[in-house]
Design a protein around this nucleic acid. Structure first.
Lengths: 148, 148
DNA sequence: TCAAAATGACAAGTATAATGTCAAAATGAA
DNA sequence: TTCATTTTGACATTATACTTGTCATTTTGA
């Protein structure tokens, strides 16, 4: 029974993710941003200006794809290149004024959504759920790594 | 703070899903099955023999793609077609003996993994976590639907 | 100094779908 | 029974979100 619930919890990750992504996508309508452009803006907002390989490391996806995401984002004008004193070939990406305004608006809208979603849930329950999910993810990661 | 934890919980869905899928994939090595073929076998095992459109409805993905999945699975010999008295054009798919053996072996292996992963977690915690995740998913689904 | 690593750019491939269309078959209402 | 509608399999196209591989340049670090 414990096992069965754990199984259900784990496989709820897909519908949960899909629902969350649908919400993000819905919140992007009219902004001119795509989901992946938003991801770039969010990283720059949360962790500060940085290079493409830095962003790739944060997102844990290959730099070649992040390069594409970042090039698109650059083209949008919400992000700009700045000279990188540490590496001539790898400019630093930074939010422009418009980019900062936009991502802050988007994030605050998303946080408001979080508040609404959490309305009927206690802090304690959310906290416990997060702990469980973290532990399960960690455990699965280890076991997948072993087997492959 | 509650909001922030909820945010983290929601976005753990991606790494959780990826870790779970990696485990499933690792467990399929040497069986000749792909992840999507396994999905077909699992549905047939859990809900019994049924047609392609039925499977598509269960998986909540378009029948055209499920058709491809099923055709692959048919080619593998783990599933076979049976005449459908209710619809001449739409045969019923059923597990073959080999298919049944294989999916049962895979499921039992995966359940054992569930037990290991749940070792250090209480029934109650898992139960609560599942409730929270179900509630959050439901809430997000509603809100995404409204906005789009 | 020089081999190794990092980076941007580009090409190709893979997995997981959605969408559109067609023809044959099945269904259901008049 | 008929006939419009729906269902189904098959096939084609497109999209998204990646990975992998390669190349030339640049940077680094021993």
């Amino acid at each position: 029974m414990k096992t069965e619930k754990l199984h259900r919890l784990i496989w709820m990750s897909r519908p949960l993710m899909q629902a969350a992504e649908a919400c993000v996508e819905a919140g992007l309508k009219g902004t001119g941003l795509t989901v992946r452009m938003r991801a770039v803006l969010e990283i720059l907002h949360r962790y500060g200006e940085q290079t493409v390989p830095d962003i790739a490391a944060r997102l844990e996806i290959k730099r070649q794809y992040v390069q594409i995401m970042c090039n698109e984002t650059l083209a949008s004008g919400f992000v700009e290149q700045r000279a990188n004193p540490r590496h001539k070939r790898s400019p630093i990406l930074a939010l422009t004024g418009r980019g900062l305004d936009l991502i802050e608006k988007i994030i605050s809208r998303e946080l408001k959504l979080m508040e609404e979603v959490g309305e009927n849930l206690s802090n304690e329950d959310i906290s416990k759920a997060l702990d469980v999910v973290l532990a399960v993810t960690d455990s699965l990661k280890k076991r997948a790594g072993e087997k492959i």
